[in-house]
Amino acid sequence: MLRSGPTGARNAPALEQINAEVFTLTYGSIVRQLISDYEDIEEVNKQLEQMGYNMGIRLVDEFLAKAKISRCSSFRDTADVVAKQALPMFLNVTANVTNWSPDQTECSLVLTDNPLADFVELPDEYRELRYCNVLAGVVRGALEMVNMEVECRWVSDMLRGDDCYELRLKLKEHRDEKFPYKDDD
């Protein structure tokens, strides 16, 4: 996410960075604008998630290109890649992958630091706002592009007084690659 457009320079894999405060404040003003546009917190949560999703389906290609990853075959490995490679690359934070469900289809990404929410305080009237919902959307969009349909929701949020940020991932379907055409067409 901390990335601007193409530079024109070839063979320049280093990530361009932007100032973290500019990033944080820009995100904050997007959220602020959504609140005044929609006037309904549930709708704002939904919009943030949708914005994240749209980012995620593009971001995955950039991530795969920069991280030189050629396969993500299991959900377990993929969750690790998100926590240990993707989050550091785009947000400059790492997450821990914990709380695996016994059937290995649910896990939590736990962040103790979240640049999206620096300088943020949630007033009481916005208690229901999922401030970082864009991140849930990004993860959902990116994983969808590698055939994993996941449900992402925030279960803890430091802005609401919890002691960490916890994003719960639930694998709904790990799709197979299938031939997209029918034999007879």
Binding site: G5, P6, T7, R10, N11, A12, P13, I57, R58, D61, E62, A65, K66, K68
Partner: peptide, 20 residues
């Protein structure tokens, strides 16, 4: 691989008018 990394991602995926 570098065609994908450096050309496709840079000029297509990051192009705002590209519809994934």
């Amino acid at each position: 691989q570098s065609l994908y990394d450096d050309i496709f991602v840079e000029y297509v995926v990051k192009n705002p008018t590209y519809n994934p």
